[in-house]
Design a protein around this nucleic acid. Structure first.
Length: 437
RNA sequence: GUGGGCGUAGUUCAGCGGUAGAACAUCGGACUGUGGCUCCGAGGGUCGUGGGUUCAAAUCCCAUCGCCCACCCCA
């Protein structure tokens, strides 16, 4: 007998099943509705892009590009009769499963000449991203982001503040509480490089007191030392030069105005000079929102300004700002707060008794479904008690009884399962009654 | 990439050298016109995989794979 090997899901990916998937849908619907009220439109993006797009936007130095992308040849694959793969030829271009979506939005902005659209271009997206990381709580190889971007000619601080306001409107809508907004300005291409050199010099002086990770980062990415979690490094870090004291006049002014605009909107924030962004394209305003109940991966949203990114990708000079929400982490936090309410997949269960009553059951189901009511009909004759028991277990609120009596009378028996109250109703009355909720 | 913990039924776990178990879940019966309860019964396992030690391994040892958590990185 041939052994059949079970095929499993790939490491770091997962299935999201009912009823949890219902909670995911509700969160996504909330995002769509809230973002729409801020006049954002949805952009549906490809899952893969030319590898070059991410290398240029995210930065060659980053871990995301260096070791986390799924990049492969676009060559057609040859599969043998035995099912094994043959080596693809080399002359095809490389494509990458998107590790984030901002680069794609910018690419789309350029490709469709969106700079000619009136006003700022405000877009949002929802979908899976891919990074080949070691999985842990709140970190998966296929993970979901809900993001938004504002692209255009203006870098008015009011844009930054409104974007963050929208974020809190969304989190408020889904009932996520205990959030912290960390805010920082990391300067522009004028002042940041100067600061980074200053920081690097200061770090070299204290290098011997730092851990191996931080010593490595002095050369690769000195700002990363700032968010080190090692207790013994905290005192040293507090003594390091701060970006806030080395911003150029324009950046300083911009940041002050962002803060004023946030106050105007009643958004509370915590200034955090140690807040660093992971991707190279960020500048000036940067922010991060953390949520409770998540373990060490506690950032549910990160974002910031990225003026110049569109230009870097071959487009016209353009200002930009955006954020990405980690949907998986939002769901984990909702769950920890006991707010991941899951609802059953069925409203009404039709109990039909006897072959003669099945046509009436099918016809009624069609009517109710047409009215948007979620209906389950047993596909074959079922014992009465068993059918009612199943209706309960599925979480249906109603059972509709159809026997020969009902068919003869032209009225169905509607039974509320919670309190066993029964009423006799015509088809039209049933539709009206069940549509109420 | 580095470290730690854990792999036994669909799920949560017990058993830790001597015949593979419980609870929950599933299915059937008590019980074709009034459900969630109860009672009775059934199915379901190469004890992650491979090797070693032993008269005997789910149990001890080694390797390997998988999952989880943390570092790293980041949403």
């Amino acid at each position: 007998m041939a052994e059949t090997k079970q095929i499993r899901a790939i490491k770091g990916v997962r299935d999201i099943l009912p009823p949890a998937s219902g909670a995911w849908s509700r969160v996504e619907r909330a995002a769509r509705e809230v973002f729409a009220t801020f006049a954002y439109g949805e952009i549906r993006l490809p899952i893969f892009e030319q590898a070059e797009l991410f290398i240029r936007s995210i930065g060659v130095e980053t871990d995301v590009v260096q070791k986390e992308t799924y990049t492969f040849s676009d060559a057609p694959v040859q599969i043998t009769k035995e099912g094994s793969l043959l080596e693809p030829p080399a002359e095809y271009e490389l494509i990458t499963l998107r590790p984030e979506a901002t680069a794609s939005v910018c690419r789309g902005y350029i490709e469709h000449g969106m700079q000619t659209l009136p006003g700022d271009v405000k877009l949002y997206y929802i979908g899976p991203m891919f990074r080949r990381e070691r999985p842990q709580k709140g970190r998966y190889r296929q993970f979901y982001q809900i993001g938004a971007e504002v692209l255009g000619q203006s870098d008015a601080p009011g844009i930054d503040a409104e974007l963050i306001e929208m974020l809190f409107a969304f989190f408020g809508r889904i009932g996520l509480e205990g959030l912290t907004l960390d805010l920082n300005s990391i300067g522009c291409k004028e002042c940041r490089p100067k600061y980074v050199e200053l920081l690097r010099a200061a770090l070299r002086n204290v290098s011997s007191k730092l851990g191996a990770d931080s010593q490595r980062r002095i050369e690769t990415n000195p700002q990363r030392v700032l968010d080190s979690k090692l207790p013994e490094e905290q005192a040293i870090i507090e003594g390091l030069p701060r970006i806030s004291e080395h911003l150029c006049e324009d950046c300083k002014e911009h940041f002050a105005e962002v803060r004023r605009q946030l106050d105007l909107r009643g958004i509370a924030y915590k200034l955090n000079w140690r807040l660093v962004r992971g991707l190279d394209y960020y500048m000036r305003t940067t922010f991060e929102i953390t949520a409770p109940g998540l373990g060490s991966q506690n950032a549910v949203c990160g974002g910031g300004r990225y003026d110049g990114l569109v230009e870097l990708l071959g487009g016209p000079p353009t200002k930009g700002i955006g954020f990405a929400i980690g949907e998986d982490r939002v769901m984990l936090s909702l769950e920890a707060a006991g707010k991941m309410a899951t609802e059953p997949t069925v409203d009404a269960f039709i109990v039909w008794m006897g072959a003669a009553t099945q046509p009436a059951a099918i016809k009624l189901a069609q009517k109710l479904r047409g009215a948007g009511i979620r209906v389950e009909v047993p596909p074959e004759e079922t014992k009465f008690k068993k059918a009612l028991g199943l209706a309960d277990k599925l979480g249906a609120r109603y059972a509709i009884l159809i026997g020969e009596n009902e068919v003869a009378a032209g009225k169905f028996t509607l039974k509320r399962l919670a309190d066993a109250v029964q009423t006799s109703l015509t088809e039209a009355e049933l539709v009206a009654e069940l549509s109420k909720n």
